[in-house]
Design a protein around this nucleic acid. Sequence first.
DNA 1: AGGATCGTCAACCATTTGGTTGAATATGCC
DNA 2: GGCATATTCAACCAAATGGTTGACGATCCT
Lengths: 107, 107
Amino acid sequence: MENPLDSVFAALADPTRRAILAMLLEDDMAVTDVAEPFEMSLAAISKHLAILTRAGLISQEKRGRVKWCKLEPDALREASVWMQSFGQFEPVNLDAFERFLEAELKD
Amino acid sequence: MENPLDSVFAALADPTRRAILAMLLEDDMAVTDVAEPFEMSLAAISKHLAILTRAGLISQEKRGRVKWCKLEPDALREASVWMQSFGQFEPVNLDAFERFLEAELKD
DNA sequence: AGGATCGTCAACCATTTGGTTGAATATGCC
DNA sequence: GGCATATTCAACCAAATGGTTGACGATCCT
């Protein structure tokens, strides 16, 4: 995967990883804490975090024995810009956004 | 893959499929014409088009023996909205966009 | 009818993906 | 030192992905 967009979009394609990003939106977190709400092994979450890191969507910094995960908005922004380059999109429509949030809540 | 974002982002993760979308930005195209610039079989392109269709990113309509492919911006817009929900992004930054285009041209 | 063109289907293959478990490494605590 | 905690590594597995080829069904043209 040469083009950075490949790894960014591939990373975003997994719901577990999108959920992790949403969690990190709140605050930086340790790997164990990221894993806590998920019904899957710590090793699996560790792999997801590695994928997000390779995509540039998060960064990880080890302090002591805990590794802190931090959202890195730049990569996401690049993907967002790619989408916007499909120019006919009017700048974000709040109605669409509200419908989206409503749809999310139904799940 | 239940969440529509799964299939949209998965579809966008492949460079061939992003290239197809960019082509369709110009105009609607027949499957054979979509396939022409790629060094891969028609069947492979047909599969890529099926993936884009399932993701809702394009639609296909058969008229006579040719099947026309048409960009469907709504699914893309939904993904774009999801990204924007990572709110700290200021509304699209033209400088970032110009840097992006410049970087693309270098390839 | 017969032939060429458009596109998909089916079977197959190699590679990647997303998960598991158990062992290993590194750090902090007493 | 010795134990608990935090995280990754390695080997493995099932399923999905991205490609191939060859046969097939539709449609158009003469």
